[in-house]
Design a protein around this nucleic acid. Sequence first.
RNA 1: GCGGGCAUGGCGAAAUCGGUAGACGCAUCAGACUUAAAAUCUGAAGCCAGCAAUGGCGUGCCGGUUCAAGUCCGGCUGCCCGCACCA
Length: 858
Amino acid sequence: MSERYNVQVTETKWQQYWQENQSFRAITDPTRPKHYTLSMLPYPSGRIHMGHVRNYTLGDVVARYKRALGFNVLHPMGWDAFGLPAENAARKSNTDPATWTYDNIKNMKAELVRMGLSLDWERELATCDASYYKHQQKLFLDFLKQGLVYRKEAWANWDPVDNTVLANEQVIDGRGWRSGALVEKKLLSQWFFKITAYSEELLQSLKTLERWPDKVRLMQENWIGKSEGAYVQFFVAGSEDEKIEVFTTRPDTLFGASFVAISANHPFAKKLAAKNEKLAAFCTECNRTGTSIVDIEKGEKLGMDTGATVEHPFDPAWKLPVYVANFVLVEYGTGAIFGCPAHDQRDLDFARKYNLPVKAVVLPEGEDPASFTVGNEAYTGPGKAFNSDFLDGLNTEAAIKTAIKRVEEVGAGKGTVQYRLRDWCISRQRYWGCPIPIIHCDACGAVPVPEKDLPVKLPDDAEIGRPGNPLDCHPTWKHVNCPKCGKPAIRETDTCDTFVDSSWYYARYCSASCEDKPVEKADMDYWMPVDQYVGGVEHAILHLLYSRFFTRAMKACGYIDIDEPFDGLFTQGMICHESYKDEQGEWLYPEEVKKNSDGTAVHVKTGYPVNVGRVEVMSKSKKNVVDPGQIIDLYGADTARLFVLSDSPPERDIEWTEAGVEGCWRYVNRLWRCVTEPKFAIAAPDEAAPASFGDKALIVRQMTHKTIVEFTQDLEGFHFNRAVARARELSNALDELDGSGQGDGFALREGLEMLVRLLNPMLPHITEELWQQLGHRVPLVKSIWPKADPALLVETSATIAVQVNGKLRATIQIAKDADKATMETAALGQEGVKRALEGLSVKKIIIVPNKIVNIVAA
RNA sequence: GCGGGCAUGGCGAAAUCGGUAGACGCAUCAGACUUAAAAUCUGAAGCCAGCAAUGGCGUGCCGGUUCAAGUCCGGCUGCCCGCACCA
């Protein structure tokens, strides 16, 4: 009788072994094929959560599997360590963001180590470390030289009480989250990355990303939002040269125009507002809405007639009213649109509200031009132009071309391509971020910090608690001399958006120890691109798009030769959990809540009732998180890993429940017993296969080899839940052996060894231990992935379903590839089939070899 | 509002080439072992009717194509994610 499985001892033993042997150290070696497995780097919130466990387990399975296939695997980890939560925590507990962040990193690293991840910790980085961000500052300066960085005014959410810029997240129902003050929009001079320089390239290149999910490519395509159309100018009536330019994708509907709408921040609106108090008030009101698109799109569509009119480009005598509208954004297109209510729903709603004409100019197929009208639903589809002068009779596609041609002929605009994608504003008016390396001089303007002066370090004595930007308020930090003229000047006090930090970390891992430049070209050439990137689907657009831009920008600066950083992408589903709020509306952690059997819940300490909220994505801000550390304490890392791999496909969202972990724990123990306490003697490690096998042993061997093939396919295809199910099926099959048949001992050893080897990427600790118990000296971490014996994969018979009128009436066992006549005879001979055919005559028999016989009868 | 996705037993799911719906597991129930419990082992089970054999119904809803639909097509409904200053 061998001992009960001791998780702690085994897991610690192998974690030490890996560390002592540097089993996962990746060394640049151009003679070997490489595989770069990357999981998205975590934000150091303090503790790992189940989403991390899922993400890193998926990545680790890939890394370990690829290592077993013989690849030189790079599998690094780091910390996305700048950001708002550190400032908030600092404010709350009166510490500084750096201490809070580094403490969190220390704790979380210990937890990751306990998960048994095959990471190369030598390459660990933290984005808040000057040794990282000094290179980021260098990249900023390089991009600046390449013309990829510029400065312009942009709107920000402004809290007038706290004197601070608010993130969209900090704007709640139009008010600042702390002060409760009504949020205003404020124009600030900010830094931008010129991502739009690559709009077309970023769009076209999506086609080459074959190992990305279609949905992510589609989302990015829509985000870039290429549209073909025209700029059209509307001259302001009664003015010689003043005009409003609009962009439209539907110039074919110009004859259906009934108004022009401009943004509250359009120059023309500002000019009019200067002389019109009511209009000025309306414009101010428009600017109260937050900067997020959701607020604007969901809010009530409002407009105000400016009293000004413009001339229709095809008929100067035709005058259209000009409105200021809250849904027209100055940063999109030209900040102005023309409204064609009959063929655009938003324009129609607007027209109905303000009693503007609705004139149909596109006739849907099959409609009569005399009777076709638009009610409260705009017709946005294609058709034939009518009521449209020279466009009459043309289909939509031809009408668009003809309209553009005419617009160009009359000098009222030109055909163009437009993208929805906007340049990336990287300025943040916050402390805990990478300082932007610029010095503002009254005489010289914005002067780059000389490279020898990098890094521009954050001061460690900034006051976080006060209103306003801590860097700006710091007594000394921002005061420097201009590098150009030497006169007193002021440092840029904006820091970088944290998306900048995470846009190139994957490249830095490859050259983690390089001190004098961001990356080493030789490392880029060998390791990049990332072969398999794994992360949350919530990053499908921004992070991935920014990283794609960064790679191109780094290429422009000569750091790298590739365009696309991530060759393969897997987006895992998210982990959801119920959320809880106390009576004051404060979020509560699950462990603070006791659930009653009737679904209600109370606070553990106070006993007060708790509101049970929806099941939603686990997030720190909502506290609906579960601590994986406790799971590992109780059951060990292997069980926790198996749990997140079992049951649900990795791309799907899952709801965390306590149930299920126990089942995985039982399986881990069952595996242990199968090897350490076999029901009968298994063959010796080096024993040759017997000359022949009994029926059961043969079936088990076939199953073993089939499992190798299918398990491997499932790993390749990221179907880890199926792979787990197959491993369990093989376990069940091995249990059927009793040692009485010929070759049972051999079949059992073979099956157990394969099981242990296949499960190694998922359960790295226990499988190493069992492999050793099975008498092997070379650990699995240094072993090659198993291969199936083709002779054992040949199938000799098939199970055929027999249907009568599409309903299953019998199944038959028949030799594989039996001919149709044999199948038909066998099918008609079945009792169930005869019964179902009683009183009917056979009309037709459909036979699919090796699959089905369907008898159609009436 | 716009863009993207998902929907199968009490629960997580499998069936990705249109061909036996529910593999594998969780929870449940019954039995074995035990003084007892835990652990372990054996067995049952989609739902409805029936002692059973068996029959009917079943993949969110409505309709279509097909010998055959979870799978393909059209139209809904519900839920989830992203929307540019959360990371």
